[in-house]
Design a protein around this nucleic acid. Structure first.
Ligand code: MN
Ligand code: MN
Ligand code: MN
Ligand code: MN
Lengths: 217, 217
DNA sequence: ATAAAAGATAAGGTCTACCTTAATATATGG
DNA sequence: CCATATATTAAGGTAGACCTTATCTTTTAT
């Protein structure tokens, strides 16, 4: 298990969590990684040879139990490092991902468990994604989007998509995890939602509001 | 600068610190890394091409200023991670090196500086090696060996060679960094030294005592 | 001075993880 | 039902970082 293999497993895992029980298309992986489809194909064959994925031509790829177990370890390491970088070193949320992307491959399970304990066994990373425990179990994923909320509702931001341009945009809008907002207006034609955060009026496009997940307060 | 290149620079740096202004022999690198001399030769050529080392056939290799600067960054990262792993996660000193060997390559300078501050800008790692600051300056290296001490002297252990079998042996002898010991007896024929630590009698071979560095108390 | 030891170089090989160009197979929607 | 879009496979290439086998050069110690 080297960084390249690990990153493939993690990516496949993340795609699988989006659209449950779907095969992941090689083309999607190619696009996401910025590699050619041929390279993806080669690696998929290697992963298959290692018993980490199941592959059906023209359908796509899917993790085996063994592959999923490995992927979960990586997801776990990634999110634990994010918590460390944020909580202990004070890195802003848009910087966490890239750093964790490297650290996740550089740590033994023994050190990871100690780090996890040191951080107080956090259940979520600083983007609101659940952190699997040693057995692979994790807290629920917030699935209700801000845009799906109704006018008058008061909600709390609990998860955002971990994508740097989005996080930078949220910084500009002055929106952070655990912020409480009240839906003032929702215009499905203009594709906008207006919310109130502590007396501050914030206007958010539908596209952005669909990448923000909330709980009703 | 990738992990392989970084590890070569660090190794050359460490050999250079031992025997000042000496060229490092490719054979020594080969032995230490466990690679063939041919492989070392190839890599040395690459390092030379990158302007990181100066190489004289039959004499050896030496870091350029550029190479030394890079090497120092790695030494710094390595030792800072060791402090983290020991002080915050409680890893025993014999486990620090292997873990730091991976983490040192996985961290940006920005994160490293934050980590350094988080740890309280330590001057020494947990084996007593000085940690260079951002400019490359560092506290002095302890150079007086335990075996060179005289009977009757009371000394404090300030540095040990970071070599796992040695550290395990010191654990068995119940010797740690900052322990205070008094030299009871030194037998240059039997190649032994006997010390008292808090009423406990500890017998140490010359070879081992020469890998332990002390200050006079 | 010279032979043995130490060190360097040459040539060819492997494996990983990427790439390009080109051919081929499948899916599907009009 | 078949054309076009989508997906796959083939073939060959590169660069890094290792390897082995073999030859050649320099140093050094007697
Ligand atoms: Mn990664
Ligand atoms: Mn995250
Ligand atoms: Mn290393
Ligand atoms: Mn150390």
């Amino acid at each position: 298990m080297n960084p390249a293999v690990e990153d493939y497993l993690k990516m496949i895992y993340e795609f699988e969590s989006d659209r449950k029980d779907q095969y992941v298309k090689n083309a999607r992986l190619a696009e996401q990684f910025g590699y050619t489809i041929q390279s993806i194909n080669e690696m998929i064959k290697r992963l298959k040879g290692m018993g980490l994925v199941e592959y059906k031509p023209y359908r796509g790829v899917r993790l085996t139990d063994k592959g999923r177990k490995e992927a979960l370890k990586l997801v776990r390491a990634h999110r634990i490092w994010e918590v460390f970088l944020s909580d202990k070193l004070g890195l802003p949320w848009e910087a966490l991902h890239d750093e964790a992307e490297k650290l996740e491959h550089a740590v033994s399970e023994a050190v990871l468990e100690r780090l996890y304990a040191f951080l107080g066994r956090p259940e979520y990373c600083n983007h609101g994604n659940p952190i699997p425990d040693q057995t692979g179990h994790m807290a629920p994923t917030y699935k209700k989007s801000l845009f799906s909320s109704s006018v008058g509702e008061t909600v709390v931001i609990k998860r955002v998509v971990d994508y740097k341009p989005l996080l930078n945009h949220l910084n500009k809008l002055d929106l952070s995890l655990n912020d409480q907002v009240r839906i003032l207006e929702k215009d499905t034609f203009a594709k906008l939602i207006k919310v109130d955060k502590n007396g501050e009026l914030i206007t958010i496009s539908q596209t952005i509001a669909e990448t923000i997940y909330v709980t009703q307060d």
